[in-house]
Design a protein around this nucleic acid. Sequence first.
DNA 1: GGGCTTAATTTGTCCAACCATATCATTATA
DNA 2: TATAATGATATGGTTGGACAAATTAAGCCC
Lengths: 220, 220
Amino acid sequence: MQELTYTEENYIKSIYTIQDRSGTGEASVNEIAERMQTRPATVTDMFKKLSEKSLIHYEKYKKVRLTEAGTKIALNILRKHRLWETFLCDKLNFSWDEVHEVAEQLEHIRSQKLIDKMDEFLGFPEYDPHGDPIPKHDGAMPASKSIPLSEMPENVPCIFVAVNDTSTAFLQQLKRFNLEIGAELTITERMPYDRSVWVTNKKGDSLQLSEKIAGNIYVV
Amino acid sequence: MQELTYTEENYIKSIYTIQDRSGTGEASVNEIAERMQTRPATVTDMFKKLSEKSLIHYEKYKKVRLTEAGTKIALNILRKHRLWETFLCDKLNFSWDEVHEVAEQLEHIRSQKLIDKMDEFLGFPEYDPHGDPIPKHDGAMPASKSIPLSEMPENVPCIFVAVNDTSTAFLQQLKRFNLEIGAELTITERMPYDRSVWVTNKKGDSLQLSEKIAGNIYVV
DNA sequence: GGGCTTAATTTGTCCAACCATATCATTATA
DNA sequence: TATAATGATATGGTTGGACAAATTAAGCCC
Ligand SMILES: [Mn+2]
Ligand SMILES: [Mn+2]
Ligand SMILES: [Mn+2]
Ligand SMILES: [Mn+2]
């Protein structure tokens, strides 16, 4: 078990996320630079370091992929991140759009006992406040099988279960639309020009969502 | 409000602790190096940096003292440290000797809201699991719960913080025993016949103190 | 006051994480 | 297939935090 810096942990988590949502299961230098708010040169340096530690598969000028060991680490950080978010919402009454930034720090706290006790304290939750599945201790991940709202056909009701963007800006926007996890939504009309969608909720309220927003709302 | 690194925060906390338990209210390069497990050269560098940021009063070859601003920061970290320790014990059933290491990490989490909510969640506690007072939000510190050394249980380390007798005779006696404010003491054995106690200090020296002497040494 | 001891500082190095700029590879397109 | 655009890497530099070794100041003892 290696000692990783907070920075290395953040890179590994970013690689996990990027490779998870790109069809190919890989991540590029530029994608990581964008996500980490840093420069490509820095990412190349880090790729070499992580490769040296056998946490990613890396070949010059090619995209990277987490190794088995790297994936295990990513899942462990994700587990901590999501358990902390759950704690902040359930026990300290944070609202779901405030937790991410703090969890971004808390996820790096090193104590196996702490995270086990926290899991127990929270009643072994399966999903975090954003609807994302919390990896188990062994890395097992509850199914999420959700798709972007933007890919739903018209007139088929679905349930808002997760967000794909945890930025405060996005979550504030949802708040403005009064959209929360658990809401039952139906696309009534899709505008061909900009791919925005008209959506109604259970109460019959109707609202128009841009493609960007609908693409970051995950439903089942 | 400046952004400090974790390292700077740890140095400030160390300076606070050392100056608090040394009679003069000052801390030396060597004392800090010892406490931070680092070298004097490193400490000198850090003193220059903290001085540059107006967090300590520093003059070459002299001992240092926290400024008003530095003290405020120290108290805030101490507050977070002790609230987290309380959380770990009260809510997650850690035992009091397991919490310090984790709190050493948690004390650096930056979120005003988190620490306020945590304080409330714990019922605004005044003392941490070690009996140390938790600074209030404004830096006010509840009176330290010092007790006579004679009332300490065996094998629990404590710190000599005050005397209850200022007579020359008593102080001479302490001098003879090489006992000074700030010393870390542990009662290793209590003699039932005359209630005298065997005490060891950090260096491992062992000495026997009468009930009268132990009763006038206050510790936390 | 001169010498000795201890404490503190200076100097030069190192490593992690950054960046700007220049160069090199890959790819897409003409 | 040649060329341009894009993506990745190499080079050299900065900053924070650490160290060892050499040097300098302070405190002490006679
Ligand atoms: Mn999050
Ligand atoms: Mn993070
Ligand atoms: Mn502690
Ligand atoms: Mn700490």
